[in-house]
Structures are given as C-alpha cells and as structure tokens.
Design a binder for these strands. Sequence first.
RNA 1: GGGCGAUUGGCUCAGUGGUUAGAGCACGCGGUUCACAUCCGCGGGGUCACUGGUUCGAAUCCAGUAUCGCCCACCA
Length: 916
Amino acid sequence: TMTEQGRDLPKAYVPADFEGAIYERWLEADVFAPDGAGARPDPSLPPFVIIQPPPNITGALHLGHALTFTLEDVMIRHARMQGHETLWLPGLDHASIAAQYVLDKIIAAEGETRESLGRERYLERMWRFINETREVMLGQERRLGASADWGRLRFTMDEGSARAVRVSFKQLYDDGLAYRAEGLINWCPGCRTSVSDLEVIPTPETGTLWSIRYHLLDDVTGEPSADDTITVATTRPETILGDTAVAVHPEDDRYRALVGRKVRIPFVERDVPIIADEVVDRAFGTGAVKITPAHDRDDHATGVGHGLPMISVLADDATITEAGDGYAGLDRYEARKRILADLKSRGDLAGEKPHEMLIGRCQRSNDVIEPRLKTQWFVKTGPLAEAALSATRSGETRIVPARFEKVWENWLTNIHDWNVSRQLWWGHRIPAWYCPDGHATVSAEIDGPERCEVCGRGPGELTQDPDIFDTWYSSGLWPFSTLGWPDRTEDFRRYYPGSVMETGYDIIFFWVARMMMTGIHLTDAAPFHTVYLHGIVKDPYGQRMSKTKGNVVDPLEAIDTAGADALRFGLLNGTSPGNDQKFSSERLEDGRNFANKLWNATRFVLGARPASIADAAEAVLREPAAAALGPTERWIRSRAAATVMAVDRAYEDHNYGEASRVLYDAIWAGFCDWGIELAKVRLADTSVDEAEREATWWTLVDALDTYLRLLHPIMPFVTEALWGALPHAADDPELLIVARWPKAGEVAPELEQQVEAVLELIRSVRNARAAAGVAASSRLPLALAVPASLEPVVRALAPAIERLARAAPLTFTADGAALAVASGSAARALSVVAGQIEAAILLGEGDAGASGAADAGERARLEKELGQAETALASSRARLADATFLAKAPPHIVDGARAREAELADRVEKLRASLA
RNA sequence: GGGCGAUUGGCUCAGUGGUUAGAGCACGCGGUUCACAUCCGCGGGGUCACUGGUUCGAAUCCAGUAUCGCCCACCA
C-alpha cells in the first residue's frame, strides 16, 4: 500500500551492501559455466564463446583490465540472456619477462639476485610469488562482476599449456616453420635476454654523430697511408671494433675510385675492403659508412650480401669481448669514451655534432637494446601471416572497428620471422635437445627424445636447450590450448573457434596476430570470428596511466567508493569502439547517480503497488489489460519498445557506449522524468477506477522489468537486486542473469506524438512561469485552445497537466479568439504557444512579483520565441522555393518540409497575436 | 618516410547526407510536491579546426592544410 513505500528495499542505494551477496548468489546458482546447473541455454542456438586476454599474473589489475573485463562481461551476459550457451574461460598469463622483472626487484630488496638463487630456487620463489598475486587478481575480477566460468580457469604455465607448447612447436618444426639459426637479434643487457622487435621501443634522443678518419692502405706498401683517408660517420664508435668493411654508394663520384681498396680499422688493426652498395645514402653524413655486420641490422644485411666476416664485440652484459682487443672487458659506454679519446690523440677524430636519432630501448627495463648475433629459434612467419590475412580478407574473421584491418594488413604483409628464444628462466623450456655434435632434435615428449634424430646418440648424451619461449608464444595458443588441444576434447569440438576475441588495440600484433597465425596452422580454423578492439583508458589529461607517473586509478578503490556498476557504466558510457578514453571521477559519479536513480525509481514502483498485492516479489507479472490503458500507459509501453530496438541495434554494432547512453536517456529522461511522473497522477486519482489504476501500475512494472533486463549486462548488480524485488513472469528464473532478453513490443508513433504535444505544453507553461518569476508553489488557472486532433489526449491527461504544470483549474476554449477573451478576464495572463496548442496562464494580483519586471520578462520570452520561429520559417520557405529541391529531394523529405513550414507559419501567427 | 585516429558548447564526449546539432558535468535562476538533494524544474552557452569540392541539401562524403596523439619503418 501507499503507506508502506520502500518496504521491500533499503531506502539508500549502497552498492557495498549487496554487490557481494549478489555475486555469491550467482555462484551458488551455478550460472556462469555453459554446463552449469543454473544455466538455461536454448538448445536451438549456437554456443557463444568469448576469448579474453589472460592478464599478466604480476600483480594488481588496473583500469584497462577493468574495461576489458567489463566489455567481456557485457557481451557474455547479453549472449546468455539471449539464450546462447556461453563460455568465458578465464585465465592468467605467466608473463615471463614482465614477471622476472618484477620478481628481480622483489628479491633485490631481500638481498638476492637471479644468480645468487640459481635457476631452481628462483623458479620456486616465482611460484610462491604468483600464488599470492593470483588470488588477489581473481578476487578483483569477481568484485567487478565478471561472470566467467571459474571452474575452467587456466594458466599459461599449467600442464595443459605446456603440452600445447611442446606439441605445437614440434609440429611447426616438422612443417618447416620453426628453425634454429644464427641471426641478428635484439639484446637487452639489463634483462639479459633477446626480445622481439615489438618489445624494442624506438625512443627519440639527441645523440652525437662522430666523423672518423680511416686510413687507406697504400697500394704499394700495403701499409696505412698517413694522409690518404676516408671519413665515416657513426653514433656508436665502440662498434668500430667490429667493423669489417666501409661502404659507399656505387654512383658516388667522390668515392668511386676508392671502391675495392682497403682501409685499416684502428685499434684492432684489421684491414677491410671498401665496398659499393646502394643502401648507402649519399646525402647522409660523409656518404661513407662503416659496416659492423654483427651489431647493426642494415650492416648485417650488407654483410650477408657481400660475404663479410661478422665479428661480435659485445658480450651478454654489454661489455667488450676479447675481439675488442685492448678494450676487452670494458662496458660499452666506457669503451666508447676511451675509443673517442684514443681517436682524438691519433688525430683521427674528424668532427662531432649533435644528432637527433631514434634509439631502441627495452619495453621492460628501458635499457638501450644492442643488436647482436645469436643462435636462436625462429618461427617462419611468411606462410602463417599469409593465412591470417586470408582469414580477414575472406571475412572468416572480422575486425571491429574495421579501420584496424589496414594496420593488420600492413603489419602482416611486412612481417619478419619471429625470434622465440628467450634467455630467461620463467617460462616454457624450448623442447629442443642437442647431442654433443650439436645436432638438434625437437620433441613433444616432456622428457625429450630417445635419441638424436641425426646421429642416433642416446638420451644420456642429450641436453635440453636452456632457453625458454617468448611469453606470447604460449599466449598465442590460448584459444585452443585452454580447450584441451591437441586432443580433440568435447570442449574443443564444442567451443572452438570462439565467437568474439576482445582486447585492447595495443596488443593486436603481440597477441591477436600470433593467435591467428598459429591457430590457423595448427587447427585449420581461424580461432575466432570477431576481433573486438577497445581503446586505452587514460587519465583525465589524456596521459597513459602508468605506475611511474603515479596516475593509475585502482579499480578496487573505484568500486569501494561508487560500486562495481558505477565503474562499469563509467567505463562504457560515452565511448566508442577502438577509441581511447579519458577516465575521471565524474564518469564514476555518473554511473553511481544513475544506479541510484534506478534504485529509487524501483522503490517508488514497489511502494505504489495496489493494495491487492501484498508482496511484489511474490506476485506474478501481468500484462496490463489493453482496455484499461490510457495515453500515459501506452506512451510508456511504446518508449520501452523503442528502447529495446535501439539497444538491440547498439549490441549488433558492438557499440556498448551507445547502448549505455540509450538506456541512460530512456530510463532517466524518459521513464523517470515523464513516465513515472505522469503515472503518479493516475495512481493517486481515486476517481479513476481500480482496474485502470492497476493497469497503470502493471505498466510501470512491465517497463521497469524491460529496462532492468536491458541494463543488466552493463550494470549487473543493481539490476539483479532490483529485479528480485519485482513481480516475475511464470516462466522467469530466480535470477535476472539467466532471464531472457526482452523482445520489442509495439511502437506507436502517432500516440507518442500526441503525448509529446502534451509534454511540450507542460514544458512551455513551466518555462513561461519561470521567465515571469511566478512563485513555484502557486497554482494558476490555465486556459487552453487545443486542435480537435489533440483534444482527446489533452483531456485525458488534464490531471497530469494540472499537477506537472501547476495549473488549475483548466478551461478549454474553442479557439484562439476565445482564449483572448478568457485571458482578458484575468488581471494579467502569460501567453504560451506550444506546438499546435495555445494556452494562457491566468495571473491574479501579485502572482508575478513586481509586475513591471514580469511583463518585461514575459515579452522578452515571447519575442525570442517569435524570432526563432521566424528564422526557421524563413529558411523553411527558402528551401521550398527552390525548384531543384522540389525536383530532386525524395518525396518524404519534401512532405516533411511542407508540414514544417505550415507548422512554423502557424506558430509565428500565434506568437504575433500574443505579442499584439 | 608511410599509415591511423582526433579536432563539435567552459570540460568529457555522442552524433556518417535531410527539420532549429544533442547528452552528462560545470554555470545561472528557482525548488522542503509523500522514489531519489547521488534530487526536481527552467535557462544561458556551439558560424561542428581551416580551405576548396561533390550534392537540391554537408558536422557527416571527397581533396588539401593545420594542430595534437598513436602505430609502423634498416639514414650510419
């Protein structure tokens, strides 16, 4: 009853009081797993599988994770409500280099190092570390509301992944797509490992370009000439020690005669040839380039092309090797200083100047990367990339938003082979064994091969490669390694390939491309149908969030202050696919306020229930009787139907920001501000019969039910809590999470237009009163002139007009002339022109404060309205006067313009009359 | 060097050919109406970065320019 309002729900919206309990109910009901006891899939629909990037196990989650989990959860909840059997398989990534980087810092604080612990104890320490972080991270995901199938939780270092790594690598090797070779790799001296091209960050820096004179050998004596020199330019003088040639452009007249002669490399006293090669840019530096094939990518290519010796002068710790002769053992930068000093004292330092350059730094440690020659394992990417490209070109896999297809094409077209060896400990050991003769045998068996496949030597003589795989190698197997591959398990058959792979665009190459490449080769199918890429969450100033900048927002803190629903809404609302977003506390507040609004709207509806319904939650949801529906009820129903359609469209487009915006507007500005306010009138009107009042209430319940369902994927906790307090249909489940997605009812555009006309009248009356300074509390008589087409609706909604426009009594007159008469009967009147409806607010003495000022305000308002109408009318007429417009524009546009013109002409006329 | 994105009210962002470009926040005025002050009502505020083009019609499509951001790329 009306006196027991809010009985069923706490008065205040306090998310912390119920979010945890709701999550527990979902777990108890076992609805997350596709085969869970509480899942209610429709067997006629195909399974829906979401693929998530397993977060690095290194620590706490940040807002980017919160966004990714929110999007995944929105998609999976939507699909679940649609009736799809859903699988969201959660997991964690061992993140080898990132994890080692973090652990190294932790053990450093304990006075230990990687070396002091040794491989075995280091790995034990790592397992201890991640066993702590794992629970913290999973707890965070649950707080956010992630409805993942925790029973299928996987880790990229578990035995399933390990086996997939071994088997896949063996297969790639057998298929000629994995090979071991000496190649130029990116070496990080800080991490003591090679890293992939993607992990090298080109960083702009001002370096120095030194010019150095190399002495040519005298043709006759074979000794370096004192003054016959060629000057080369370099930013890394320490690499002189590894020079094996000097290159010039073949058509460079300055040097043409020198090609074929030799120079002596200083300090190492090596005689090397001057060669001609078109890679040399004549305009840069001196036009002569020193060639260090073991330490520069260009030079390496040149060295291969010309058959030059490749001399490694840098060791693992970036000190100079024995090949560096007198500089051996020095750090690379110390050696650089000494070499420069020595060149200067020899008189061979020809010049130096500041030089803007890009220097490669390690994504992890920020150390300067050194290109080095190493024997490593590589994955041959050419054929794999080709297959990945055909999958996207054929549409087997679709990228959302589509603009990323171009980046995708470009990267996969110019891809280099993938160096997968890492000189780290935390990760999957490369399943390659070597015999004393150096033959390699790749095996998928955990204990390695029986014997060397080349020379047949036995197991006692084989040793496994000490290196591990690049983390992304195992991540790349994720979509199928988690489903039991290489076995054709039931899960694999049922859930592979996945439906949507959701991740940030920043790992499209690291992860998405690798999954596609290995996935297609190993399983003969692209691992997912849709790639959905989200943008980066940045701080309020547009800066990327990072621990070092100290601008990270902790999702847990946000949840603690505003609730998980608020955070989820804040992360989605006003965003679009693939675009970065700035996150600020205002977004969080928007979400919290919205949830609060919904909470209170539901409290109102519950409290307004008819006396015949003792307990709303126990009542059976009923369609209101059609005959008992008034314009308000029909309008509410039509709006709800239109919202279902708009939200469906947004979901189809993967436009979740749009879905949230549509719902925010429909629920707040539509349902609450107008629907409930209009409904209140009839609910409180005792002159209306009981059946009609009940129909109004059921209309509110029905609409609210629809909105809660539509909003559930985005704000699951508050919608679940509220839905539980409302009546349900007989075939509804206990929990909203497994309830069915609503189907759109009928939209009634004509009825909507008529009701909108009344709303416009109410707004206009409010506006006129405010502009004239009428006291908000005073009720004033309102005279109305309503066209016949609108009269039934206006009369039906008269009580609402009285209440919402604070107008009473209402009098209806035949036309504008009669209205003028009615106005004349009052001390003064405020004219209102709202669409086709004219009205006069009749003022008594003293109703509008100082009447002079009020008159001026009133006049100004009407003049402004008239001005706007006249401008619009003029442009409308100009358009209709244009013969080409009439001839070429489609008929419905022309008709619309005509109607518009008539409407405006009418409005102008009425406003002029009011001002006269 | 190549590519992508952004540029819309003070701020954050929607809006991909058709009335007078929208929202939230912020701002101003008013509000103790029995869901909500985490609220309600009313209002002010934008020549849609610039130039040109296509079109009956452009914030929207095309070309170019500028600024900012990002990605890719082997000038030592």
